[in-house]
Simulated scan of single mutants.
Amino acid sequence: MHEKKTPDIRSNIISGIFFGIGLMALIDEIIFHQILQWHHFYDHSTPFIGILSDGLLNAFALFAVVLGLFMFADLNRRERRHASTWVASFFIGLGGFQLFDGIVNHKLLQIHQVRYGVEILPYDLAWNITGALLLSIGIVLMIRARKQRQAG
């Protein structure tokens, strides 16, 4: 008889968060930095430094995505995955990155803005509200996942 293994909740959370952070960083980098060319990760220097900072952000994002996926694959291999916890963590990673970027990078450190040459408030609101919405979805899903685990 095949015994059901206990999910590794901590690893599910870390894996989902890393994957969410990495994916959102890649979405930001690809859409806003490369396709739309609204900003670079660091905008207060030469174009070379701006592009270099984008490359470093890309490297970080790819590392986070790969780490999250390797951890997810290991959880599956060991039969210790808890899907609802992982999905909740994924949304927390997405929203957490978006809010961190919008609040810390855009406003506190001011290393770049969402876009230049326009009224920034609508862009800031859209950026941060999207991040807060994704983070809220993750928190609600995490509460549901915890209840599901407790119900057994």
Rank of each mutant, 00 (worst) to 15 (best):
E29L: 12
S11H: 10
T6P: 00
Q98R: 13
T130M: 09
I21N: 10
Q148P: 00
A88L: 06
R144P: 02
H39E: 05
D8G: 12
W38R: 11
F19N: 07
K107C: 00
I27N: 08
M71Q: 13
R78W: 00
S53A: 15
S15W: 01
Y116D: 10
F48I: 09
A64K: 02
T46M: 08
L56K: 04
K4F: 11
V66K: 12
A132F: 11
S11R: 15
L121K: 05
S11M: 13
I21E: 07
H39F: 01
G22H: 00
L94F: 12
F72E: 08
G20S: 12
S89L: 04
P47A: 11
F70T: 10
D43F: 01
P47M: 09
L135T: 11
G16S: 05
G131V: 02
V65M: 15
Q37A: 10
H2D: 12
F90R: 06
I31F: 05
A83I: 06
R80S: 08
I27T: 09
S11P: 00
G55R: 07
G68N: 07
Q34F: 03
E29M: 05
D74I: 02
A61Y: 06
I103P: 00
L69A: 15
I30A: 14
D74C: 02
A132Y: 02
L36V: 07
H33F: 07
K147W: 04
L69C: 14
H39L: 06
N128Q: 13
S45T: 08
L67Q: 14
A88S: 13
F32H: 01
I139R: 07
D43I: 00
F97E: 15
M71D: 06
Q113G: 09
L57Y: 01
G131F: 00
F18P: 01
W86K: 03
